[in-house]
């Protein structure tokens, strides 16, 4: 897993709630079989006009947000489809963190798995950050995972909660699979005790 410790970057805003993963990465880009190369397609239908040129009315296309690595957005970010391509696309776009009042569950896990930090702040704090990013061109914040804080050049802005499990994984770059493998004796013991009535799939392909 890509570690996340401290990141300083330019904040861009996308002021809308319920941004779904179909918008983050439309389905026509899900046919590839690797994890790279989705950045160009991130927010495709919003980002480009029908001629394939950047649509100047899309918030993230403002020149002031070029090079942004932190997205400040609305509630329930990442709802809908479970496609992890959404996290890969946001990373490919250049983001390292998304700040929102809430995240959809599957997206949040996908982001964490890839070292894209989902930072949950209160609605009031997100509004404050949005205003600052919109009024103060070039405004940057620093996200410190150890201290669970978001700060700007003037100092404290907000603190956030994150589960110990994910904090440790991100700080150390741990692999959740390797962590599960360490519990192999317990997994094997559990398998021994599973009911013999539970179905298996082995013969299904031959049906």
């Amino acid at each position: 897993m890509q570690p996340f410790t401290v990141h300083q970057g330019l904040c861009a805003t996308l002021v809308r709630d319920d941004v779904d993963t179909d918008q983050i990465i439309p389905k026509q880009f899900l046919k590839r079989t690797d994890k790279d190369g989705y950045g160009e397609a991130c927010f495709f239908d919003w980002r480009y006009d029908s001629g394939g040129n950047p649509d100047p009315s899309f918030e993230l296309n403002q020149p002031r947000y070029a090079g942004a690595s932190i997205l400040v957005t609305g509630q329930n970010f990442g709802c809908g489809s479970s496609r992890e391509h959404a996290a890969w696309a946001l990373l490919g776009y250049g983001l390292r963190a998304v700040i929102a009042p809430s995240f959809a569950d599957i997206f949040r896990t996908n982001a964490l798995q890839n070292g894209l930090l989902p930072v949950t702040l209160t609605l009031a704090e997100v509004r404050l950050l949005t205003e600052r990013a919109q009024t103060d061109e070039g405004w940057q914040v620093t996200i410190d995972l150890t201290r669970q804080s978001v700060t700007d050049a003037l100092g404290h802005v907000a603190t956030f909660e994150i589960e110990d499990f994910w904090k440790e994984c991100l700080l150390e770059g741990l692999d959740p699979i390797a962590m599960a493998e360490k519990r192999d004796p317990e997994i094997s013991a559990y398998e021994q005790g599973r009911s013999a009535l539970l179905p298996t799939t082995s013969y299904l392909g031959a049906l």
Binding site: A87, P176, M179, E191
Partner: peptide, 20 residues
Amino acid sequence: FGIGTSEVEQVLATQCLWQA
């Protein structure tokens, strides 16, 4: 419940998932 591709990999490897 639905999972992402990293979790698909984890289930393929260990038949388990870290859950809260």
